[in-house]
Simulated scan of single mutants.
Amino acid sequence: MELPEVCVIYLLRRDGERTEVLLGDKRTGLGIGKVVGPGGKVEHGESLRDAAVREVQEETGVVVAASALLPAGRIDYFFPTRPAWSQRSHVFTCTEWSGEPVDSEELAPHWVALEDVPYDRMWDDAARWLPDVLRGGRVDATFTFGPDLATVVDPPRS
Results as ranks from 00 to 15, higher is better:
C94G: 10
G24S: 12
A108L: 14
L3H: 00
K34D: 04
V64P: 03
L30M: 13
L30W: 12
P71M: 04
Y119C: 10
P4C: 12
W97Y: 08
P147F: 06
D50A: 13
S158D: 11
E20R: 12
G136S: 05
P131G: 14
G33P: 02
G61R: 00
E100K: 05
W111Q: 06
V117N: 09
G16N: 00
Y119E: 09
V42Y: 00
E46C: 02
S47N: 04
P71L: 07
V112I: 10
R128I: 11
G39I: 15
S86R: 02
V91K: 07
Y119L: 11
I9Y: 08
T93Q: 09
K26R: 14
A126D: 13
L130G: 04
W85N: 10
V139I: 11
A141H: 15
R49D: 08
W123K: 01
G137C: 11
Y10C: 02
V133W: 10
L70S: 09
V42Q: 03
S104T: 04
L107T: 07
F92S: 06
S104R: 03
S89V: 15
D76T: 09
V63S: 14
G73T: 08
D76V: 01
C7F: 05
A108T: 14
R82D: 11
V117S: 08
D103C: 07
V63E: 15
P38M: 13
D120K: 03
E96I: 03
V21F: 01
R14P: 01
L11I: 02
V6M: 10
P109E: 06
R157H: 13
F143C: 02
P118W: 08
D124M: 07
G137L: 03
A65E: 15
L107E: 09
R27F: 01
G33K: 03
H110F: 15
S104M: 02
R54H: 07
R49T: 12
E46W: 01
M1P: 01
D76A: 05
T93R: 14
V8R: 06
V133I: 09
V53N: 06
E5T: 04
G146W: 03
G61K: 03
V152C: 11
P118H: 07
G137A: 12
A127F: 08
D132P: 01
R74M: 15
T142R: 09
L30H: 13
G61H: 06
P155Y: 00
P4Q: 05
G99Y: 05
S98K: 12
L130D: 10
L22P: 06
T93D: 02
W123Q: 12
A66F: 03
T28G: 02
F143Y: 14
L114N: 14
D25T: 15
L12M: 07
P109T: 05
S89K: 07
V153L: 01
G33F: 06
S67M: 03
D140P: 00
T60P: 04
D116Y: 08
Q87C: 09
